[in-house]
């Protein structure tokens, strides 16, 4: 909801704190998820995750959540889906070029970041979205990637992307994931 998401960026510092705690919990649960099988828990987590994040952030379930690096403003709400800052067409007062009644997502993001403890993370250059991961749980992906960041990549293309965006790989590993994806987390191919 538009008004709720503006509220979220206005209170980005509180949401940042909540998100960090949530991440700690998910990373701690990694051994459990592994025992149960990430594929089995994928839908169980993805469905409520969609409800919560849609309500709070107008989440589009790109599967590669980077809210902590974008001032708690979801970049997928930008009509151009820009992941790295505003375009040059922002209207006076910080309104969107494409949807003039909407605040520019990136103006909101930068304001949100300026209130956050680690707002400087907005300066990271984030990689392009992997469109195959749309609809999957970003929380589980963060858990997989952060619990075992050193995991050797089995996929050469993913390793190359992580190498091209080294800082993003360190700070937002699910934006340049290396761990093997459970079949249900990939929206094309056998798992879907």
């Amino acid at each position: 909801m538009y008004r709720v998401r503006l509220f979220a960026t206005r209170h980005s510092r509180a949401f940042e704190w909540i998100y960090q705690r949530l991440e700690t919990v998910f990373v701690a649960l990694d051994p459990l998820f592994r025992r149960l099988g990430y594929n089995r828990v994928e839908r169980v987590v993805a469905v409520p995750e969609r409800w919560v994040k849609s309500f709070l952030f107008d989440c589009k379930m790109c599967g590669q959540c980077v809210l902590s690096s974008t001032g708690m403003a979801c970049p997928m709400n930008c009509p151009k889906q820009l992941r790295n800052g505003p375009c040059g067409g922002v209207r006076p007062g910080g309104y969107c070029e494409v949807k003039p009644q909407m605040r520019c997502v990136w103006t909101e993001a930068w304001e949100g970041a300026s209130r956050m403890k680690h707002g400087e993370r907005i300066a990271e250059v984030l990689p392009p979205v992997d469109r195959r991961l749309e609809g999957s749980s970003a929380w589980l992906r963060a858990s997989r990637e952060k619990a075992r960041p050193e995991e050797a990549a089995t996929d050469k293309a993913r390793a190359a992307l992580a190498q091209a965006f080294p800082r993003a790989r360190v700070l937002e590993p699910s934006a340049a994931p290396l761990a093997e994806e459970p079949p249900r987390a990939v929206n094309r191919g056998e798992g879907s």
Binding site: P79, K80, Q81, L82, R83, N84, G85, C87, V125, L126, P127, P128, R131, A160, A164, F165
Partner: peptide, 16 residues
């Protein structure tokens, strides 16, 4: 509209 990359990922892609 495509917008698969954005200007920054495009810069980094050509740099790579």
């Amino acid at each position: 509209p495509v917008f698969d990359l954005d200007s920054l990922t495009l810069i980094r892609t050509i740099r790579t």
